[in-house]
Design a protein around this nucleic acid. Structure first.
Lengths: 236, 236
DNA sequence: GGCCCGTTTTGAGCTATCGCAAACACCCGG
DNA sequence: CCGGGTGTTTGCGATAGCTCAAAACGGGCC
């Protein structure tokens, strides 16, 4: 088990109220692991034995229905925690986590959590913040799904991805990991067909440039305009 | 300010790790207030000056878009906390809270939160659990909105309301506060018209009995069956 | 007791989006 | 360099649910 350099993670909000020396103690309880692209990190319904902090790569958290339909709960970017089932009192993971790119994560055993929060109460506080923020994002997503049309929802989704994991190019912003039409459909509550049609249309308007599991926002502002349009006035 | 009887609230999960004497200290920081039916407790966007524990009545938390459309985030039942913006690091309320029935709540000033969690770390832990549970419910709701038809979503919504706030009658379960077709529409991402049609149809099948802001589930099991039906086989 | 207002019901047409199906493009491995 | 497979595009019909409209209903207030 390689020792983790504290400087890599010290600035994360998670460790907000933690002294550098203490940070080392926290990290000592973790190990790290590599996950190749498309490998599963944990499966929905499995025992929540660990929680994670992503160091490199990108992870997709997805939830599956009994009938096999799936939605993408979120994409995890480096510096974010995931698999926090235990902190919220769940014994099993409520979703499946897949590395969408070669990824590296720190891993703590779930059993270490009670001890850690007792010793470092600020961990509970910052985790509460994190989970609270996700709850708000969740509500925003519900609001969008309830009130907006598919095109607007896709626009919002792409803008969020760009903000979270966008790589700035001189001719736009590229989403920095492989993402398919299907994935976007599962983020917005629609079908890959509809997403494909929308992206095709946008491409012809010069708003995006896209290909196999790859999307570049050429005109982010134009997409913002689309996203905020209140359901009338389509293109002629 | 009337003193609050600790026995009323001691059993709540929120106060799980708190000693009875300490509980008294926590309650001393709170005041209580009455909210008449249909009055606002706080407005979306307002300064989050307080957080609340509902003692009696029912509260609807709703989120509004810039264009005036609304969704119901959740209904709060007695014993539940709401308005926790501060715990999750928000300076303003992300939703509006309305008493849907004459209600009574305990109120703490937001400013007391840091002190309370420092003194009683278990508060942070139990709040984390609460928020985590809500996050999961939120994800479930997104999953439903993405994969189910309106009728199933309405069925699920009513079953949840019945579980949370159902009053058992000999001829069914009544939802124990005034709730309109519009409210249900805003919980499920549809329109009051569609909800009305669905309830009419259910009524003719003997599944429910309903009227002005009033719903009784006459055949809860039948509704469960509806809720779980996988999008095929309608009635003949 | 009658009136007024918010809620509910119901009809009829419309359309955004789905579902199915088929052709296509691109990337990787051999 | 070619073959196979996954991901993407596009056409076409079907439809669930929306929108608009109007009437009926029910309760509380004066």
């Amino acid at each position: 088990m390689a020792k983790v350099d504290t400087s890599l993670v010290a600035h994360l909000p998670l460790f907000g109220g933690v002294k550098p020396g203490d940070l080392e103690e926290i990290l000592r309880e973790a190990r790290s692991a590599r996950y190749p692209r498309n490998s599963a990190i944990f499966e929905q319904g499995a025992d929540a034995q660990s929680f994670f902090l992503l160091l490199h790569g990108h992870v997709r958290a997805a939830k599956t229905t009994p009938t096999g339909e799936q939605i993408v709960v979120r994409y995890v970017a480096p510096g974010e925690t995931f698999g926090l089932a235990m902190a919220i009192g769940a014994a099993r993971y409520p979703a499946t986590a897949i590395a969408v790119d070669d990824s590296v994560a720190l891993i703590w055993p779930t059993s270490a959590w009670p001890r850690l929060v007792e010793r470092f109460p600020s961990l509970a506080a910052s985790t509460l913040q994190t989970v609270g923020t996700r709850l708000q994002e969740s509500h925003t997503r519900i609001l969008e799904m309830s009130t907006q049309q598919v095109e607007q929802r896709v626009a919002h989704a792409l803008l969020r991805l760009a903000k979270q994991s966008g790589k700035k190019l001189d001719h736009g912003i590229e989403i920095d990991f492989p993402i398919s039409r299907q994935d976007i459909a599962q983020m917005t509550g629609t079908t890959l067909h509809t997403v494909s049609r929308i992206l095709s249309s946008w491409e012809s308007q010069g708003l995006v440039e896209s290909g196999r599991q790859r999307i570049i926002l050429r005109d982010p502002h134009g997409i913002v305009v689309l996203a905020e349009r209140s359901a009338d006035s389509g293109a002629a």
